[in-house]
Every structure is written in structure tokens, then in C-alpha cells.
Design a protein around this nucleic acid. Structure first.
Length: 804
DNA sequence: CTTGCATTTTTTTTT
DNA sequence: AAAATGCAAG
């Protein structure tokens, strides 16, 4: 019997989700429906009733941060140490843990390197060059995404080769690239992100005893965000939750000296229980291979499955939920589901149309200040963007306005060149086979090792079938210049020293000394390689910043030491490789507003949420429109964004936006027309991004009335927004004409040039005379003295003006 | 082999 | 606008 305390405060559905016992359970959990509470109480229930030991529980989350949070909440329910033996981690962390333990079985060494996207790309780029494959139209990105798709589908090299059309030279070219890519990873003792999952599945399939070990151990498997699993992850779950034959079970128990565990009548170990939690409407990772069918077809996959729907939302106001429901209803291929709450309507959504990304950012900054004055603190506020590039104007305005913020994700610290260089050194200390790492740093800092030298090294390595690292062990044999020979010898000795520090293994492993913690290895490498000195000694201020980044890296490595006192250098590198953007959110926001992408925002909630850049070609993103299901996924992304908000929601867009060092004219997103007009209060675009002056040309600024240029042209001037049916219709039948025609009102004057003294006519302000022009390419601003309206500043490219 | 300058390309989202 | 690439000069 589950303790009544564990069920306190739960609604009947949630309670059922905690109490149900059976082989398979699907919890369809709408946004904000309290699924984390349900999951943690379900785990706590299993522990407190002694149905399971902590060690028998495997919970898979989407980010490390979510895992830490879940562990903490389970601990709060059942006591601090009860949760210790549980595995709560991401797919990738769990698989790496398995693979490091069983690496030899799969032909890897335990110290394998994990290649991130940039590493993989660098490798593919080189392979394309070597094969002259760009002549066939191959690009690194294209090849990589295809390889990734194949791996997510568990189509390995052999399987792909069997099905390839060998009359098609392009197909053969791709096969050769796939082959070389696979071979290079193998030789480097490296796995890419997709391999981490795939190789674990292959491991379980090839070695039933290994699979049995984990199946026997994990009696309860719980998977969060199930809608974002790809085929390989699905296969992994099937492997983990399959029964074990009697003979295999006997063998494994004998081999490891285990007691005879739980068995069925026929002697087999029964399948573990599986609980998955997900929401098809929040599936936003199809581009990464996530297959929505995994959740849609769960009941077919597990015929005994029980399904529970959680639709009551405990997060948002009814207004916000109405908007979310209306938007998502436009996705035609979904099961009807509609969130409701009993907290009441709350405030209306605020809409804003700016004339530029800066203007939009100014609106956000102003509203944040207003929120703060009304008692909403910065940590309760988040600003979402579709693409990382959008954060720039936000940052600029926030800095100018003194709005404290933290940026999550974006150009990540760990992706900076100097940081990756440092990691390449560290990698070589634990994985000497990693040729890519050696290539990266062999001439960083400069040692006079150019392409020709690297080619000579590679040639010898290929001849002898050894990694590059071995070739630089005896540089004299290469017949290079004396300086280069000396430098390579020094580098080789440095790697040996670092390897000794990192692993504590001397020579052939006969002797051992205590391994040093990762930050000490790092400090040694940074000092002795000259990497830090080369940057610190440079007169380029950017290099100074890079040197400081390395200092910062060292402090982070020390921080790792505090968190994981037993962590080895390999653990540290793994930790960094599997570090996710959302993991940065751990701890409190420190009094700051959070800026992040819509993707990173999934699973989070804030009192006030700004969704910015709600424009055609940004949300939905232009590229997504060419992909099957792309539009629906973009709509889900918008839905995810909306449902993050508890009390206040702000939707904004800009009519022109800087891109590629140019200004492009944007149209409002079709998604805006899907929100019932009465839910949104459209503000005009007044307010001075240019120092409190007038409006920079966009029509919505005229007259200070409510409503944007969009609603004006649709014949409405009230606060109701565009005139259109509130009811959601199928996408194809939905009338969008008024939005389309509204869009026609946005001007693009091309490269109209104005000079002081020119007379112009503005659609709203009438005639005026140019009194000043600040040339700034496409962002040229003209100051105009209007006869009736006074002085205004206009963005020449987009203002509704004509030269007289 | 390195440096500096000119030219081209790039931005979707991420474990 | 910034980063990556290509090319010529030292």
C-alpha cells in the first residue's frame, strides 16, 4: 500500500498514474500537468513499499539537469540515501556508462573519446577533401545528417552497403564516405553522439549475457519525454525491457555469483515494467531523428499497456491555455487533447510589432522593467528566441538598459576554439589513438608544423598502421627539419607526462601511482604546451580574452573536482561532452532574466514569458517548410513556448530584421492568426529605440492607437486584433488573406537614398523635409521635419515614404 | 610555413 | 557581421 502522503494533493488521474502496476504504462501528460510530480512519486512509491530496491530503477530524462532534479525530488520523498543506487540519467549518459564498462566487447577501449558535432564535421570535411567528393556535390553537413539518420535508424555500414544502388555514383560516393568515417572513428577509438546509443543496442544484441545483466538489474524503467525518442533509443528500451531466457539467466547468475533472482514459472526472468511519459504536442526534435510514432504506437507495441491522460494544467492562466489550445488545434494529425485549468483567465496576452530586432528588444526591456516594478522578479522572466542569432540585439539592448540577463546555450563556452584545443590535449592524455585530437593541436600553439608535415606523419602512420601519436614518438625517423623534429619530440613527451598524471599508469601498466585530478592534468598541459602563454603573450586583445577563457576553464575543472571528488579525466571529458544547454540552468538564475531558444525552454516554466521573432521564415523557420512535417513541428515549438508561461505572455515580432549584414523585411507569422484575437492586446510600436524619438517608419506607430499596422489594414482599429474566426480550421481552409494583405503594407524601399533638403511624403505623417541623414548601409536613418507632426526619425529602407 | 588580405559563405533547432 | 577559405608574399 502506498503511503497516503505520497498521494496527497494529486488529482484522480495523477493518483492512478502513481498507483498503477502493470508491465507497461503510458502517461500522456499535457504541458504543465504535473508529470514530474507523478514520476517522482511513482518512483518513491516503488521504493517505500519495498516493491523495488533503488538499484532496480532506471529513469531516463532529457537533460542532466532534469535528472538531478528528479533525484533530488525522490530523495525529498524517501530520504537522502534511499535514492543513491538509482540510475537517473539521460540516454547518452546511461549508455556511456554501460559502454565504458563493456567497451572491449565492442572493440573499443574504455577511454574512448566522444566526438561532438564539430569534431564529426571536421572529420567529414577532411574525408570529402581526400575523396574529392565535393565534385559530386557532397557537403559536410549533408553527409553528416544522412549518416546521423542512418545511425538513428540502426542502419550500420554493412546494412547500408547491402541496400546501396551500385549504379549510382553518388550513392557509391556516399557509401565510401560512410565507410571511411566509420573506419576513422574506430581507429581513433572514438564514438559520435549517435554511436553512443547505437553501439549500446548492438552490444545488447550481440551479447545476450550483457543484456541479461541489465535486464535482470533494472526491474522498473521509466522514460520521460518519450515523444522525443528516436528509433535507436526505442530499440534500446525494448532491449532493456525484454525477458531473459532461462538458460541465459542461469549462465549470467552463475558467472557473476548472483543469487537466483526473480523467475517466471518457465525459469525465465520476466520483462521489466516500463513507464513512459510524453506529449506528442511537444515533440520538437524530429530533426534529430525523434520519431513521434514511438509514442503514438505505444499501445500497439505493448499490448498490455495502460494509458492515462493528464489534461489538467497547474501552470498557466486560462487565457494562455486558450491561446495554446487554439494554436495546436491546427495540427491536423493529432489526437484531440485540450488543456484546462481552474486558476481563471488572468491577464491578456500582449502583442507587439517592432520595426527592427532592436526595437523589439527595447519593447522586451521596457516590459521587463514594468514587470519588475509590479513585483515580478527577473528570475521569473524568460525571453525565448527561435535561433541563436536573435539573441544579439536582445543582449545589446539589455546591456544598455541595465537589464541583468543570462544566456543559456548559444555559442557555448565549450565550443570556443581555445577551449576545444585544451580539451584536445586532455583527450590525448587518455586516448592516444585520437588522431583528430592530435591533428587539432599538433600546431597549436605554432610549432612550424604545416600541412606538408602532417601529411608526412599521416603517411607513416598509414604505412605502419599506427595512430599519429605513435609516429611523433620518434620524430627523427621522419627526416624533417631540426626545429620541427625537436618540437614534435617535446609534444610527444608532454603527452606521456599528461597520460601518466591522468591515469597513474606507468609504462605497460605494471606499476601504478595515484592518478591526479583532471584540473591538475589540464594545468600541466596548458603550461607546458605553451598554449596559455602564446595567448597571454599576444598583443591581440582577443587573444587576451582567450587566455582568460582558459583560466575560466581551469576553474570549471576544479569545480568538477568538488562535485565529483572521484572523477577521473575520462569522467571529466565525458561530462563535458554530454553537457547540454539546459544543464547550464542548474542553480538559481542569480537575479537575472533568462534568454534561450525555444528548444532549450522545453520542460521549464516562468511567471512571464516573451516569445520574440514570431515572423514567417523565422517561426516557422524557412528551412523547416521544405521538410515533411516541418510546419507542424514549428507549430509545436510555438506551443511549447506558449505553455511555458504561468501568468504573463508577450508575443513580439519585427517588420525588418538584420540578417547576413543586411536588412530583410519580415512578415508576421501565420501562427499569430491562429490565436483568437480577443486574447491579445496589440501594442503599437512607439517608443524610442533611437533615444526617445519618434517612430522609425513602421506604420503601426501612427496616432498612438491600439493595434498594429496589421490590424489596421484589416479594417480594425480596436484592440481586438485582426478580424478572423477564432475557431481553428484545417490549415488549408484557414483564411489568411487579411494577414497576407496586411503584409503588403510593409515597405521595402530597396536602396532609396535621401539627402538633407529632400522633400518626402510619409503615408501617415504627410509631407516633410529631410534635415539629417545618418548613413549606415541598409540601416540608414533619416531625420525628417514633418509639417504637421514635427521631427521624426525614419529607417529609410522600410519607412512608408516616397521622395517628392 | 606563416602571415595578411581578399573573397566567399553562412544561421535552425541539440543530445 | 562574422567566420571560413583561398591566394600571394615573405
Amino acid at each position: 500500500m502506498i503511503d497516503a502522503q505520497l498521494l496527497a494533493g494529486l488529482n484522480p488521474r495523477q493518483r492512478e498514474a502513481v498507483e498503477y502496476r502493470g508491465q507497461a504504462l503510458l502517461i500522456v501528460a499535457g504541458a504543465g500537468s504535473g508529470k514530474t510530480s507523478v514520476l517522482t512519486r511513482r518512483i518513491a512509491g516503488l521504493l517505500s513499499t519495498r516493491e523495488a530496491f533503488p538499484s532496480q530503477i532506471l529513469a531516463i530524462t532529457f537533460t542532466n539537469k532534469a535528472a538531478a532534479e528528479m533525484r533530488e525530488r525522490v530523495e525529498q520523498l524517501v530520504g537522502t540515501h534511499a535514492a543513491d543506487g538509482m540510475w537517473i540519467s539521460t540516454f547518452h549518459s546511461a549508455c556511456v556508462r554501460v559502454l565504458r564498462r563493456q567497451a572491449e566487447a565492442m572493440g573499443y577501449k574504455s577511454g574512448f573519446t566522444i566526438y561532438d558535432a564539430a569534431d564529426s564535421k571536421a572529420l567529414v570535411k577532411r574525408l570529402i577533401r581526400e575523396l574529392d567528393a565535393d565534385a559530386l556535390g557532397f557537403t559536410p553537413g549533408g553527409v553528416l545528417s544522412r549518416i546521423s539518420r542512418l545511425k538513428n535508424e540502426l542502419t550500420d555500414l554493412d546494412a547500408f552497403a547491402r541496400g546501396v544502388d551500385d549504379s549510382d555514383p553518388r550513392e557509391l560516393g556516399f557509401l565510401e564516405l560512410y565507410r571511411r568515417y566509420t573506419a576513422a572513428l574506430r581507429r581513433a577509438n572514438a564514438l559520435d553522439f549517435d554511436d553512443i546509443i547505437g553501439e549500446t543496442v548492438y552490444l545488447f544484441r550481440a551479447f545476450p549475457e550483457v543484456a541479461a545483466l541489465y535486464r535482470r538489474r533494472f526491474r522498473h524503467v521509466l522514460v520521460d519525454e518519450y515523444q522525443d525518442t528516436n528509433h535507436a533509443q526505442y530499440a534500446l528500451i525494448r532491449e532493456l525491457t525484454a525477458p531473459v531466457d532461462a538458460e541465459v539467466a542461469d549462465r549470467v547468475e552463475a558467472l557473476h555469483g548472483f543469487q537466483r533472482g526473480l523467475r517466471d514459472a518457465d525459469g525465465s526472468i520476466p520483462a521489466a515494467s516500463l513507464t513512459v511519459v510524453g506529449d506528442s504536442d511537444q515533440s520538437i526534435y524530429a530533426f534529430r531523428g525523434a520519431d513521434i510514432r514511438n509514442i503514438v504506437e505505444f499501445e500497439q507495441d505493448f499490448p498490455s499497456a495502460h494509458t492515462i491522460l493528464l489534461e489538467q494544467n497547474y501552470r498557466s492562466t486560462q487565457t494562455i491555455l486558450d491561446a495554446a489550445n487554439a494554436v495546436i488545434a491546427n495540427n491536423f494529425d493529432r489526437k484531440a487533447k485540450s488543456l484546462f485549468t481552474d486558476v481563471g483567465a488572468g491577464d491578456r496576452i500582449i502583442g507587439y510589432t517592432g520595426y527592427s530586432g532592436h526595437d523589439e528588444a527595447q519593447f522586451v526591456a521596457d516590459e521587463i522593467e514594468a514587470l519588475r516594478r509590479s513585483g515580478v522578479g527577473h528570475p521569473q522572466i524568460a525571453v525565448f528566441v527561435r535561433t541563436n542569432a536573435q539573441t544579439r540585439p536582445l543582449e545589446e539592448v539589455f546591456i544598455r538598459e541595465g537589464v541583468p540577463y543570462r544566456l543559456v546555450g548559444g555559442t557555448r563556452f565549450y565550443e570556443r576554439a581555445e577551449v576545444k584545443d585544451a580539451f584536445a590535449y586532455l583527450t590525448l592524455a587518455v586516448n592516444p589513438d585520437d588522431d583528430l585530437a592530435l591533428r587539432r593541436i599538433v600546431n597549436t600553439p605554432k610549432r612550424g608544423v604545416g600541412d606538408a608535415t602532417v601529411a608526412a606523419l599521416q603517411a607513416k602512420a598509414d604505412r605502419e598502421g599506427v595512430p599519429l601519436r605513435e609516429v611523433i614518438r620518434e620524430p627523427e625517423e621522419l627526416g624533417l627539419g631540426p626545429r620541427v623534429t625537436l618540437a614534435l619530440g617535446d609534444l610527444s613527451r608532454l603527452i606521456d607526462e599528461a597520460a601518466l598524471l591522468a591515469t597513474g599508469v606507468v609504462g605497460d601498466g605494471e606499476d601504478r601511482i595515484p592518478a591526479r585530478p583532471p584540473h591538475e592534468v589540464l594545468v600541466h598541459l596548458l603550461a607546458k604546451s605553451g598554449l596559455h602563454a602564446a595567448l597571454a603573450g599576444s598583443d591581440d586583445p582577443q587573444d587576451q580574452a582567450r587566455a582568460e577563457n582558459l583560466d575560466e576553464l581551469v576553474s570549471q575543472a576544479k569545480e568538477f573536482r568538488v562535485q565529483f571528488p572521484e572523477g577521473t579525466t575520462i569522467d571529466y571529458l565525458t561530462n563535458v561532452a554530454l553537457f547540454a544547454a539546459a544543464d547550464e540552468l542548474e542553480g538559481d538564475a542569480g537575479g537575472k532574466v533568462t534568454i534561450m531558444t525555444l528548444h532549450t525552454a522545453k520542460g521549464l516554466e516562468y511567471d512571464a514569458v516573451f516569445i520574440t521573432g514570431i515572423e514567417e521564415s523565422l517561426l516557422p523557420h524557412r528551412i523547416s517548410l521544405n521538410e515533411p512535417g516541418g510546419l507542424s513541428e514549428e507549430r509545436r515549438l510555438f506551443y511549447v513556448g506558449i505553455t511555458r508561461a504561468r501568468k504573463r505572455l508577450f508575443l513580439s515580432l519585427a517588420t525588418s530584421r538584420a540578417a547576413y549584414g543586411d536588412v530583410s523585411v519580415a512578415m508576421p507569422s501565420r501562427f499569430l492568426a491562429e490565436i483568437p484575437g480577443e486574447l491579445i492586446d496589440w501594442r503599437d510600436s512607439g517608443g524610442g529605440a533611437f533615444g526617445g524619438g519618434g517612430e522609425l517608419g513602421f506604420r503601426g506607430g501612427s496616432g498612438g492607437r491600439a493595434g498594429t499596422g496589421l490590424s489596421r489594414t484589416s479594417g480594425r482599429t480596436g484592440s481586438g486584433g485582426p478580424d478572423r474566426p477564432a475557431r481553428a480550421l484545417g490549415e488549408s481552409t484557414r483564411p489568411k488573406t487579411e494577414w497576407r494583405s496586411a503584409v503588403g503594407a510593409i515597405r521595402d524601399n530597396g536602396d532609396l537614398r535621401l539627402a538633407v533638403g529632400d522633400r518626402i511624403r510619409h503615408d501617415d505623417f504627410g509631407e516633410g523635409r529631410v534635415v539629417n541623414v545618418v548613413e549606415n548601409g541598409p540601416r540608414t536613418v533619416a531625420e525628417v521635419e514633418f509639417e504637421s507632426r514635427g521631427r521624426k526619425r525614419l529607417l529609410v529602407k522600410v519607412a512608408p515614404i516616397a521622395k517628392l
